[in-house]
Amino acid sequence: MKNSWIIGLLLALIGLLPLASTAQQVAISDFMVKENLSQNGKLAIIATDSLEKTNNTIQGNYRFTINGFEQDLKFSDGVAVTSNPIASSTFVYFKHKSGQKDIGKLFFLRVTEKGITPYKISGMLLLIIPLLILYIAYKFKRFLITLLILAIIYFYLNYSKGLDVRELIESSILGIKNLI
């Protein structure tokens, strides 16, 4: 009877051992990109918390998508180094799927002789710049239409009514002098 208790206890412990060895990885909630400390042209991806402080509990392999290519990055104390060096300035998109949440960031990596400087590009900026260009083009179109109408009126007055550019400029200068 005593031996059956011991055998039962050992079987229960043996059954629970695989569960203890398959611990779940800590999820990466955010990350930032910097140049590797050795300045060898490689990037360091640093796992951070919501306050942008390094999360040192991140250990092991995590899957990242870098410009569409999937890579397993090995994190040690919250820092992983990419395998390929950056040779010239470029845009790079980093994406990581953490449980239910996708984290994606676009960076412009400027390469100089001093090293790599990453500039984060906001998603809102990618929406605002094209809208601003369209707005300027719309306003410029209206300006061009107004300029075309004024040119047609000028040519009409110039050819049929005898208006000359010198007289127009002289009239404007006299009008400004009268105001002063």
Rank of each mutant, 00 (worst) to 15 (best):
L17F: 14
N55I: 03
I129R: 05
K74A: 13
Y154T: 01
Y62A: 05
I153R: 12
E113D: 11
I176D: 05
G41L: 01
M1S: 13
V111G: 01
N3D: 09
Y119A: 03
L150T: 08
L43Q: 00
F155L: 15
S83A: 11
Q39C: 02
I86E: 02
L106G: 05
K177E: 15
I103M: 07
L132F: 12
K42E: 03
L19P: 04
Q71E: 15
M1Y: 07
S4N: 10
L16F: 13
L163I: 13
T57N: 14
G115F: 00
K141C: 04
D164T: 15
I180Y: 09
A87Y: 10
Q25D: 12
T22L: 10
L37P: 04
K101E: 14
I152N: 08
A20E: 06
G15N: 06
S50M: 13
S50Q: 12
L11S: 15
F140N: 09
Y154C: 03
A12M: 12
K101A: 04
G78N: 02
Y135D: 07
T22R: 13
Y154M: 06
K74D: 13
S29D: 14
T57E: 12
S172T: 10
A47Q: 02
L134V: 14
K53E: 12
M1F: 06
L148G: 11
T65I: 11
I6M: 09
G68C: 03
G104Y: 07
G60F: 02
K141H: 10
E167D: 15
H96A: 05
P85V: 01
D49A: 02
L179A: 10
I176P: 01
D30R: 00
A44V: 00
Q39D: 04
S83I: 08
R110K: 15
L148S: 14
S21H: 07
K139P: 01
A27S: 13
T117H: 00
L127M: 08
P130W: 01
L17V: 10
D102S: 14
G175N: 14
I136Q: 10
N84P: 04
I128M: 07
L51N: 15
L144I: 07
E52W: 04
K53Y: 12
L10E: 01
R166M: 09
F91C: 05
S122D: 08
D77C: 04
T90V: 13
I14M: 14
V81L: 03
L10Q: 05
K34D: 13
G78K: 00
K120D: 04
